[in-house]
Amino acid sequence: MVQIEIDEDACVGCGSCVEDCPNDVYEMDEAKNKTKVVNLEDCMACLSCHEICPAQAMEHQDIHVAKRLYIDRKVNYALDRII
């Protein structure tokens, strides 16, 4: 089953994930001003929260990771040599 880890040090408390999640998986912890997972069972691992989070503060574990055939391996190889 999916597990979601929130890096509380990284989370900036913007609430973007709370607004974006269609299944209300997240909620704001008002005391800490951080996001928290409240409805893990309904997470469908669409990873919209990853895309919207400005701090990349969350990690999904044990999910189906979609194929990423759009990645250009030659470009990645070239970037690896530069960066």
């Binding site: 269609p22 469908m44 691992a45 669409c46 990873l47 919209s48 990853h50 895309e51 999910i63 189906h64 990771v65 979609a66």
Partner: peptide
């Protein structure tokens, strides 16, 4: 479409 995401669409 209910929702689109980078890893899955409902």
């Amino acid at each position: 479409i209910d929702h689109v995401g980078p890893n899955a669409c409902l």
